[in-house]
Design a protein around this nucleic acid. Sequence first.
DNA 1: ATTAATTTTTAGTCATATCTAAAAAAATAT
DNA 2: ATATTTTTTTAGATATGACTAAAAATTAAT
Lengths: 227, 227
Amino acid sequence: MSFILKLVVTLSEENYLKAIYHLGKQGVNAVSTNAIAEKMDTKASSVTDMIKKLAEKNLVNYIKYQGVSLTKEGRLTAASVVRKHRLWEVFLVEKLHFSWDEVHEVAEQLEHIQSKKLINELDVFLDYPTHDPHGDPIPDKDGNISKTDKIILSQLQVSERCMCVGANDSSADFLKYLDKHHIALGTQIQIISKEPFDESMTIKVGDVAINISKVVSNNIYVKSQTL
Amino acid sequence: MSFILKLVVTLSEENYLKAIYHLGKQGVNAVSTNAIAEKMDTKASSVTDMIKKLAEKNLVNYIKYQGVSLTKEGRLTAASVVRKHRLWEVFLVEKLHFSWDEVHEVAEQLEHIQSKKLINELDVFLDYPTHDPHGDPIPDKDGNISKTDKIILSQLQVSERCMCVGANDSSADFLKYLDKHHIALGTQIQIISKEPFDESMTIKVGDVAINISKVVSNNIYVKSQTL
DNA sequence: ATTAATTTTTAGTCATATCTAAAAAAATAT
DNA sequence: ATATTTTTTTAGATATGACTAAAAATTAAT
Ligand SMILES: [Mn+2]
Ligand SMILES: [Mn+2]
Ligand SMILES: [Mn+2]
Ligand SMILES: [Mn+2]
């Protein structure tokens, strides 16, 4: 007789796993205590406490003073939370008239609702979306995400054309800035000129040309148009 | 200069307020500590602890040894939680293929999501439903519920006709029993006969006659058909 | 009106998740 | 190589929400 007891993961633990998941995606193998603390707006000592609990539950690999990485189980749990977060964001925008700068806060709560059926049916209801309203990929049930070859707008050369496929910074402030300049997912952009002194660039959005700072161009993901 | 600071109500506090709200609906003025403890499957001492916190926040009126009642503020908060619970139940059944015996557990989680816009838009999206999948009324934004003149099936006389408008017991077991006998909201029922010795009754549902116990007829709400 | 039973409250404990301050280890600089 | 700075961990404290056991108040019974 074998017992498979479904591991209970608290809301707090889910948030830590998600933070480690996002930080780990930057190609780093081990994530530092301080990085987690900063991302979660908490203290390093609190992070250490939690890491021990997560290690105890085999959700992270942890060596003192050497940072943490997710185990297979931990990564799957984190991906599930991200999947829920992004599906809910799609729901809010597509069905409930939310704008893309309003969804994050609510999705932070909804991502912790526990119900396999709920999230599966939501996926069906939304017709299996692959990306959230910010252009971020939605992990599938197994935690796999479709690789996209998005690049940062600031890396493009003058005269190149591209399409907006995401925002790196998804703060309400930045998203509202994009709205103001009519930049949304799918918007066509052409590079008109680049200023060497401050690295700002002038781009054409629709019929209007606007100048955007390096900070802005660094936070817009685009797909190069090879036409 | 006046400060209106939005009172923070925890998830746990919301659940207590909801329990007091439901218990208070039975025409009782003050709700006893033990009644709350039983409803919430907790200990009386825990209830006393929480009651003090709720009284401190002016959400309940509390006199030692004399039970509690909701203040205006407490009643509004409780009604808001019930509103959310029932709107989510409608969503799950209408949009996500849940059956009426599957929704409660998930709604228990969803009812605590905090977002005015979310619940208002959900209301719009569902086209302003007045009742949840179990026939229970959905409070409006001000906490008011539409009075329905529903009666208990067991009170009807032989040959009377009625329509099912709700279930008093909304446990999965009971709801599945109703499903099995094709009794749902809106189902037409006629009383064929009543047995005096065990108070069971035979009713006609569609074309088939079935015998139901007093326990069952006590838990089905109906509206008398005056045709 | 006492006594007995029930209900409710208090006192003390525990687990979770947080924090501050201090100690220990690791990384960096001289 | 040693000293300084930074990072991380430990130790101890606090708040929430729950529990058990015992005391106090209320209600019911004789
Ligand atoms: Mn988000
Ligand atoms: Mn997003
Ligand atoms: Mn319910
Ligand atoms: Mn219901």
